[in-house]
Design a protein around this nucleic acid. Structure first.
Ligand SMILES: [Zn+2]
Ligand SMILES: [Zn+2]
Ligand SMILES: [Zn+2]
Ligand SMILES: [Zn+2]
Lengths: 136, 136
DNA sequence: CCTGAGTTGACAACGATTCTCAACATCGCT
DNA sequence: AGCGATGTTGAGAATCGTTGTCAACTCAGG
């Protein structure tokens, strides 16, 4: 072997990537790439939209942010804790609560096992209207 | 009130709509609108893609088919039982098992209630590799 | 037949995401 | 500091799923 290292990708801390993580830190709910890009722009920075997508994808791969799809299929992103969890998301304002459900995790494994499925992953998201948005 | 009926939409069983349901019956896994349209075309029928979308949306609204989003965000469809359920989907061949989990249903309601969220909906899909695809 | 409401299809329009590729920034090394 | 090798960026084009437009069409029912 030429090296013991597993071929490091050499990711560089550029101004653009820092701008994206800063924008993510400014939100505490799920936002689209467009919205994140808009915030960066509004703060005077200039980062290409394609670069925002690239940064978000990389962060999602590294587990620093969660990406899920809104009900109309658009990808939305949020910096999240690194432990496995799911989300309770307000359909109207986007307010998000991270939730954990060990029982659900167990249930999915069991169900999959019963049917002989292996290498399991799952998605579970809950959408609703949060208290703040309920003031009719 | 002018009538006791809640304004019936008067849906007509046209050749096109029949072709779509027939195509859905021919699949037993989730398929994209494109794939469904292709099958119809391959069978000699001619139905516009937009019409396929309209028929699928209508069927989904009436609960006769389930629509979910593949991992890359594309809408995929499948004729399904009308009771609320979720899916165990083979990542490799698409083989689908309908699963029910009353406990999960209860858990999502409870979690949502705890946080004051109302008007709840949820998505839960399990992906894995089915037994048939495991013959390495 | 006649008429009106539902339906269709070709095509344009849309919007999110990805691709292209030349210019640029950064890293490691001297 | 100077230099190459390599990762990164951005503007715009391109892709692609999906929806909108609207005139032509179908089909009951009278
Ligand atoms: Zn999360
Ligand atoms: Zn989980
Ligand atoms: Zn189903
Ligand atoms: Zn459920």
């Amino acid at each position: 072997m030429t090296s013991t290292e597993p071929a490091r990708p050499a990711v560089r801390p550029t101004r653009q990537r820092r701008a994206v993580t800063a924008a993510l830190a400014a939100f505490d709910d799920f936002r689209s790439a467009q919205e994140i890009h808009d915030l960066i722009t509004r703060q005077g920075d200039s980062v290409g939209l394609a670069t925002v997508y690239r940064a978000l994808s990389a962060l999602a791969d590294s587990g620093e942010v969660d990406m899920l799809r809104s009900e109309d299929g658009e990808a939305i992103w949020r910096r999240c804790s690194d432990t496995h969890h799911h989300h309770l998301v307000c359909r109207s304002c986007g307010a998000t609560v991270e939730v954990e459900g060990p029982a659900v995790e167990r249930w999915t494994s069991a169900i999959a096992g019963e049917h002989g499925y292996a290498d399991i992953s799952h998605t579970l998201e809950i959408f609703g209207t949060c208290p703040a948005c309920r003031v009719s």
